Simulated assay, not measured.
Amino acid sequence: MEAYRYECANAHLETLARVISDLFPEQTLFSDRPADDGTPGLAVQWVAMRFGPTARRMTLTVRLPAPAYARYVAVPAAMRARSFAVLRAYVEAALGSLEEQYANGEAVPREVDIELGDEFA
């Protein structure tokens, strides 16, 4: 049994999922989730044990604006390290923000969206 589940029809999104998978617990599901306007998106669904007394299903959706995504796809695979680093930084910051909210006694949302900007690619 694979530690993570990748259900991405888009190979580029699956690559991005694999870049951040180690930030999440095993059994996390990564899947395509385009916005209504077709903007590419990657949904990360996992069961969080650290945001309350019981486990909660969480979803973090990473939105990739079409121009930035097109630039990312156009870059040769060997030159995508910067995009991977930006993605990891955004996801780590989002998870850190959730942990900070919980530590401060604030409600932690079950669904979080982050949008990568031009610095992504």
Rank of each mutant, 00 (worst) to 15 (best):
M49D: 12
D22L: 14
L42H: 00
T59S: 12
Q27W: 13
S31P: 05
G38I: 01
G52A: 08
F51D: 06
Q45R: 14
R63V: 08
V44Y: 03
E26H: 13
P25F: 11
G38S: 02
S31G: 10
G52D: 04
Q27H: 15
A66L: 13
V62W: 00
V62K: 00
L23A: 12
P40V: 03
L60R: 02
D22Q: 13
A48W: 02
G52W: 04
Q45P: 01
Q45C: 09
T59G: 10
P65L: 02
T54Q: 11
A55G: 09
P40Q: 05
R63K: 13
L64N: 01
L64H: 00
F51G: 03
L29N: 07
L64R: 00
F24C: 08
P40S: 06
E26V: 11
D37Q: 01
S31A: 14
T28F: 07
L42C: 01
M49Y: 13
V62D: 00
L29Y: 07
M49T: 15
P25C: 07
M58Q: 11
G38D: 02
D32C: 05
Q45I: 10
T39C: 04
A35L: 08
P25R: 10
R63D: 03
T39G: 01
L42G: 02
D36M: 09
V47W: 07
D36P: 02
M49N: 15
L64D: 00
V47C: 14
F30Q: 04
D37V: 00
P65T: 06
R57I: 13
T59D: 11
R63Y: 08
W46S: 04
D36V: 14
A43V: 02
D22Y: 09
R33S: 06
T54W: 12
P34G: 01
R57V: 10
S31H: 12
D36R: 15
R33H: 08
V62N: 00
M58K: 05
A48T: 05
T28Y: 01
V47E: 12
G38Q: 00
E26N: 10
T61P: 00
F51S: 08
E26R: 12
E26A: 09
V47D: 11
G41M: 04
P40R: 00
D32F: 05
V44G: 03
L23Y: 05
D37S: 02
P34L: 02
R33G: 05
F30M: 04
T59Y: 06
E26Y: 10
V44I: 11
T39I: 07
L29Q: 08
R50H: 13
R63L: 12
